[in-house]
């Protein structure tokens, strides 16, 4: 680790201070997201080919997993 790198409580080292909002880790109660038992809202978004995906219509009654990442590139 160099002088301009900072390590957070999870052991990850980065160039930004761990107090910066981009690196801050939620403390206390952490319950993001709609609750289990709630209906998933419908949405339309472009896929990697630029085609519009209509979530509920295109899954066509199949079960689905919705994943959220901070970035698709790492």
């Amino acid at each position: 680790m160099t002088e301009d790198e900072f390590t957070d409580p999870y052991g990850f080292t980065g160039a930004l201070p761990v107090t910066s909002t981009q690196r801050m880790i939620p403390t206390g109660e952490f319950k993001p997201g709609l609750s289990i038992g709630q209906p998933a809202p419908d949405f339309e978004l472009p896929n990697h080919l630029g085609e519009t995906v209509s979530f509920h219509a295109d899954r066509d009654g199949a079960r689905a997993a919705l994943l959220f990442y901070r970035s698709a590139v790492w």
């Binding site: 289990i36 038992g37 997993a65």
Partner: peptide, 28 residues
């Protein structure tokens, strides 16, 4: 605009049946 990392599982009716989210942005 970034989300917390995690996932929802839906049943055939589009109802959330399970979910798991992480505090740390690097975790998935």
């Amino acid at each position: 605009g970034v989300p917390f990392p995690g996932f929802f599982l839906l049943d055939e009716d589009g109802v959330i049946v399970d979910k798991l989210f992480n505090r740390h942005f690097a975790h998935r």
